[in-house]
Amino acid sequence: MAIQVSLPTILRPLAKDLRRVDTEGETLAQAIDFLEASFPGLKDRLVEDGALRRYVNIYINDEDVRFLGGLDSELSDGDRIDVLPAVAGGQ
């Protein structure tokens, strides 16, 4: 069984307008690299200088990966990944 990734509106154009895509990997970093092979440009929107971008939230099975180990977070078959841009700003 694969790992399902749910993409936000703003990233769908990079993934053939798909809302959900499948990936593989034992860590989040590997899962993102797997996606990048099919959808070039996606990784750059998620990762910057080897770390998750500040503006993006990624969840594995409803847990924020910032509390799971970031890009080193472990994955298993059947896991569900959600990607959501942060809603934030300031004056």
């Binding site: 939230n57 969840y59 409803d62 924020d64 910032r66 959600d82 959501l84 942060a86 809603v87 934030a88 700003g89 300031g90 004056q91």
Partner: peptide
């Protein structure tokens, strides 16, 4: 904050 806003990440999900 008076200078910044951010939705809590779990609230956002």
């Amino acid at each position: 904050s008076p200078n910044f806003y951010e939705f809590d990440s779990m609230d956002l999900l």
